[in-house]
Computed example of a mutant assay.
Amino acid sequence: MSTNALYADLSIYYDLMCTDIDYSAQSHCIQRLHQIFGNQKKQHLDLACGTGAHIRYFLNQAYISTGLDLHPAMLAQAQVRCPEADFILQDMSDFNIGTHFDLITCFLYSLHYNQGIEKLRTCFDSIYNALNPGGIFCFNWVDKYKINNKHFVKHHLTYENALFTFCSRWYYSGQGEMQALRLSIEKAHPDHTYLWQDEHPMVAMGIQELNDFLQPHFEVHLFEHDYDKIVPWDQVSGNAIFVCIKS
């Protein structure tokens, strides 16, 4: 099954797959970073917004939010969750909305969905062009050199009389500009079980490399991947939160 087919067919289960994510803590952390580094305005764009779970928390804090995603089924659910927000069907690798923003976000490592370094470059160009002066771009990133191919996360829950098991893991071969996000969803009934598996190609880069990559256009600040407190990145861990100020 292709990458797009997985999300198109299973978009109804996307929120179940992400049920262990603390959207409130993530959103609040980025709002705090925006208060520290931003221009104190609240025009907000969320890239790869999915079903709008993060946007809901920004709207609750009086942000004027827009969501962008490549999957119509996701956007349909996001519009129901956040009727006061605008949603746009575009590819974040090369988008043009015609509006400028004070804060652009991309959660859940979704910036990795850019298909290669050149796509990532055009994505950053689009982000830079869409930011107001003093606007910031916040996202999280995993360092390709720190990926443990054996590590995975898994959780279970019951929904519609079925037991769901969601599993995800990063994989990097050790060379090249692409890594993979491997996903599986198992839906078990008493008498039968369905299994979906997929591998999403993701752009790969080290944190220090990405920092250098961003420098020409942004003032970059790196923080530990900890949404409960704001701590500078220790230059050792394999995850970081990037805050990029339009220079």
Score class of each variant (00 low, 15 high):
Glu209Gly: 12
Ile207Val: 11
Lys229Arg: 12
Asp228Ser: 12
Glu199Phe: 00
Glu186Ile: 01
Phe218Pro: 06
Glu199Pro: 04
Ser237Tyr: 07
Val231Met: 08
Leu222Asn: 10
Trp233His: 10
Ile230Gln: 09
His192Asp: 14
Gln215Ala: 03
Asn211His: 07
Gln208Tyr: 01
Leu195Ser: 05
Asp234Asn: 14
Thr193Gln: 12
Val231Asp: 06
Ser237Pro: 02
Leu214Ala: 01
Asp234Gly: 12
Ser237His: 08
Leu183Glu: 14
Pro232Glu: 09
Ile230Cys: 01
Gln235Lys: 12
Ile207Met: 06
Asn239Asp: 12
Pro201Leu: 14
Ile207Glu: 10
His221Ile: 00
Ser237Leu: 02
Pro201Tyr: 15
Asn211Val: 00
Gln208Leu: 10
Glu199Asn: 04
Asp212Asn: 10
Phe218Gln: 02
Phe218Met: 12
Gln197Pro: 08
Val231His: 01
Ala188Asp: 05
Tyr194Asp: 14
Gln235Arg: 13
Val236Lys: 15
Ala204Thr: 08
Gly206Ser: 10
Met205Asp: 06
Thr193Gly: 07
His217Gln: 09
Ser237Asp: 11
Val203Ile: 13
Pro201Thr: 15
Asn211Gly: 05
Trp233Glu: 05
Pro232His: 05
Ala240Gly: 02
Ala204Lys: 05
Trp233Cys: 04
Gly238Arg: 02
Asp198Ile: 11
Asp226Lys: 12
Ala240Val: 00
Gln215Arg: 04
Val220Lys: 05
Asp234Lys: 08
Phe223Gln: 03
Pro190Asp: 10
His189Asp: 11
Val203Gln: 06
Gln235Ile: 03
Lys187Ile: 07
Lys187Ser: 09
Pro232Trp: 05
Pro232Ala: 04
Pro232Gly: 02
Lys187Glu: 01
Leu222Thr: 12
Pro216Ala: 00
Asp228Arg: 00
Lys187His: 08
Ser237Val: 03
Glu199Ile: 02
Tyr194Trp: 14
Arg182Leu: 12
Glu219Phe: 01
Asn211Gln: 09
Glu209Asp: 15
Tyr227Pro: 02
Ala188Lys: 11
Ile185Glu: 03
Ile230Gly: 03
Val203Leu: 02
His189Lys: 12
Glu186Gln: 14
Met205Leu: 00
Glu186Asn: 03
